[in-house]
Design a protein around this nucleic acid. Structure first.
Length: 495
RNA sequence: GCCGCUAUGGUGUAAGUGGUUAACACGCCGCCCUCUCAAGGCGGAGAGUACGGGUUCGAGUCCCGUUAGCGGUACCA
C-alpha cells in the first residue's frame, strides 16, 4: 500500500511551496488509498521550536491536509540514525574520519564550495586517508575519545541510477559524489542519513518532494543500497518561483509566501488548494475549477510538469497582493459556495472588524445570509465583506472622495435627496419594486433622469460608486437607514 | 569552477506515437448592460513555441550546440 510523507523543516510557518508539496503527497495518497504521513525534520535544533511545528500543523489543518500519521519529530530518531551509521562502519560501508573539522571563514557557502572545488581540481582529488584505516584501529581511536565523523564509502567507479516519476531516468557518476558525512564529529546525524533511515522505518513507498533534492537523491540511493533496503520511488516537483523567476522566500517577499496570510486575508481553503494544484500540474483538459474529489480523481505524478512555475504577484499594487488568478479563483469559490458555508467564513471577519451583532445568529440570521448573498458576486475574498462591505454592516463608514465627486456633484441633489428621503419614508411595504416605483415616480415629477438619483443614492447610502443594484441596497439597509443616510448625505453634495 | 534540471503570449497551462492559420484560463483593452461597478454578457490585442544549426516531404514535438534561469556541489536541510 502507498505510504507517502511530507517532511518540512520547521522554519516557522507553512509556505506555499511546502503547501503544494504537502498537497501533491496528499492527493497521491488519497488517489491510491494510501497513507499520508507528516514528519518534521527538526534535526537542526537551532532553527526549530515547538511554535514552528505548531505553525505547520495549523497551516495543513486549515488547508484540509491533516496527516493520517504523525506528526513525527525527526529529532526523536537520532539514536536509530547513529545505530545505522555504526552498522555501516562495522560492515565496512562507512568509515570514521579523523580529519579535524574545517574552520568556517566569513565567505558565503557558495564561495567556499567553489573554492574547494577549484583547489581539488588543481591538486587532483585524493582519497581520504582514513577511508581504509583498519576497523579495529579506528574503533580504538574512537573509544579513546578521539573525535571523528562518519562518512559513507562511495564506490571508486560506477554510476548511480534511479527513475524519477516526474523527471525520468537520472544518472550520476560516482566520481561526482563525495564520501558524504553521515554523522558529524559532534555525533549529530546529518540530513541525508536521517531521511533515509526514517523513510525506511516508516516504510515510505513514494518520496514526493521539491526538485531541489533531485541531484542529492543519488546519495540517498547509495545509502539505501548500503543499508540493504529497497529504494522507494522518487517524484520531484518543479519549484515555485517569484516574479522574475527568482527564488520565492519569506525574507525577500514577505507574507505572500505564508499560508497563514491566505487564511487571514479571506481565502477559502478549497480555492487555495485548487490554485496550488494547478501550479506545476494540469489535468490535461480545459477544466480548472475542480473540487477536492475531482482533483483526487484526476491527479497523477506523470502529469506533473518539469519546469518551474512563476507565482505571479505584485509588491506594489495592493489589489494584486497575490497571484491574480488565485484571487479570481477565490472569487469563483465565493460565488459557488452554498450560502450556509459562506456565512460562517464571513462571520469570522465581521467579528474581527467589530461588525458582528449577536442577533445575526437569531432574528437577523436570514438578513445576514441575504446580504452576504447580495454582495458575494463582486467580492474576491471573505475579508472584502468586512472592508468594502462595511457600509452594509455598520453606520460609520467612509465616503470615498472619488465616489462623492462623481455621483454627488450636482447641486440639485441637495433638494432631490432630501425629498427622495421624504418620499421613501412614506413607502409602507419597503420592497425592491416599491422603492423603485417611488424613486422613478419622483424623478419623473421633477423631470430629472432616474440615473442621477440612483447613482447619487448609491453613494449616499454606501459611500461608494459601485455595488449591487440600487434597490437591492435599499431593501438590505431597510427603510429607516435608507432615509436617514439620504438625509445625512445632503451635506456632502457638491463636495 | 564542476554536475544536473528546465525553456510555448505578461502569468498558469494545452497541443496521444512529428502532420492543416499553436488551444484554454487569469490578467489587459474595447463594446454592451442606459442603475453604477472591481459584477455579468460579447469581442479584441498579445506567442510562431529562448537562440542557432541539423534530421525529415513536414518539428513546439527528435538530435547537436549556444544562451539564460534555477537547483546541487556543506561536518545546512
Amino acid at each position: 500500500t502507498v505510504r507517502v510523507r511530507f517532511a518540512p523543516s520547521p522554519t516557522g510557518y507553512l509556505h506555499l511551496g511546502g503547501a503544494r508539496t504537502a498537497l501533491f503527497n496528499w492527493l497521491f495518497a488519497r488517489k491510491h488509498g494510501g497513507v499520508f504521513i507528516l514528519r518534521i525534520e527538526d534535526t537542526d535544533i537551532h532553527r526549530s521550536s515547538q511554535a514552528m511545528v505548531q505553525g505547520i500543523l495549523e497551516g495543513l489543518h486549515w488547508l484540509g491536509l491533516d496527516p493520517d500519521e504523525g506528526p513525527f519529530l525527526q529529532s526523536s530518531f537520532v539514536e536509530q540514525h547513529r545505530a545505522a551509521a555504526r552498522r555501516l562502519v562495522k560492515e565496512g560501508k562507512a568509515y570514521y574520519d579523523f580529519t579535524p573539522k574545517e574552520q568556517t571563514d566569513d565567505k558565503t557557502v557558495k564561495e567556499r564550495i567553489a573554492d574547494r572545488a577549484r583547489a581539488q581540481e588543481q591538486a587532483g582529488r585524493e582519497s581520504n586517508p582514513y577511508r581504509d584505516l583498519p576497523l579495529d584501529e579506528a574503533l580504538r581511536r574512537v573509544e579513546s575519545g578521539e573525535p571523528a565523523a562518519i562518512r559513507l564509502k562511495v564506490g571508486a567507479r560506477g554510476v548511480s541510477r534511479f527513475d524519477d516519476l516526474v523527471y525520468g531516468p537520472q544518472e550520476r557518476d560516482y566520481s561526482e559524489i563525495e564520501d558524504l558525512v553521515l554523522i558529524r564529529t559532534d555525533g549529530h546525524p546529518l540530513y541525508n542519513l536521517g531521511v533515509v533511515v526514517d523513510d525506511i522505518e516508516m516504510r515510505i513507498t513514494h518520496v514526493i518532494r521539491g526538485q531541489d533534492h533531485l541531484t542529492n537523491t543519488h546519495k540517498q540511493v547509495l545509502l539505501y543500497e548500503a543499508l540493504g533496503e529497497p529504494v522507494p520511488q522518487f517524484a520531484h516537483l518543479p519549484l515555485i518561483m517569484a516574479p522574475g523567476r527568482e527564488k520565492l522566500s519569506k525574507r525577500k517577499h514577505g507574507e505572500v509566501v505564508s499560508v497563514t496570510t491566505y487564511r487571514n486575508r479571506g481565502f477559502v481553503p478549497d480555492a487555495l488548494v485548487n490554485f496550488l494544484a494547478l501550479l506545476g500540474w494540469s489535468p490535461g483538459a480545459d477544466q480548472e475549477i475542480m473540487s477536492r474529489q475531482e482533483l483526487i480523481e484526476k491527479f497523477s505524478l506523470e502529469a506533473v510538469n518539469k519546469s518551474s512555475a512563476v507565482f505571479n504577484f505584485s509588491e506594489t499594487d495592493s489589489r494584486e497582493w497575490t497571484d491574480p488568478k488565485a484571487l479570481w479563483m477565490n472569487g469563483e469559490y465565493l460565488k459557488a459556495l452554498p450560502i450556509d458555508e459562506l456565512v460562517p467564513l464571513v462571520a469570522g471577519h465581521l467579528k474581527e472588524a467589530g461588525l458582528w451583532r449577536d442577533d445575526y445568529e437569531t432574528d437577523k440570521r436570514e438578513w445576514l445570509a441575504q446580504t452576504v448573498d447580495l454582495l458575494r458576486a463582486r467580492y474576491r475574498t471573505t475579508v472584502d465583506f468586512a472592508q468594502m462591505g462595511r457600509p452594509y454592516f455598520a453606520d460609520d463608514f467612509e465616503y470615498e472622495p472619488a465616489a462623492v465627486k462623481k455621483n454627488l456633484k450636482d447641486e440639485k441633489l441637495k433638494d432631490l435627496l432630501r425629498e427622495l428621503a421624504d418620499r421613501l419614508s412614506a413607502v409602507d411595504d419597503f420592497t425592491h419594486d416599491n422603492s423603485e416605483a417611488a424613486l422613478r415616480t419622483y424623478s419623473e415629477e421633477r423631470g430629472v433622469k432616474a440615473g442621477l438619483l440612483i447613482n447619487g443614492a448609491r453613494t449616499a447610502l454606501t459611500g461608494q460608486s459601485v455595488g449591487p443594484s440600487m434597490f437591492d441596497i435599499m431593501v438590505t439597509l431597510g427603510r429607516e437607514r435608507t432615509v436617514e443616510r439620504l438625509r445625512r448625505a445632503v451635506e456632502l453634495v457638491g463636495k
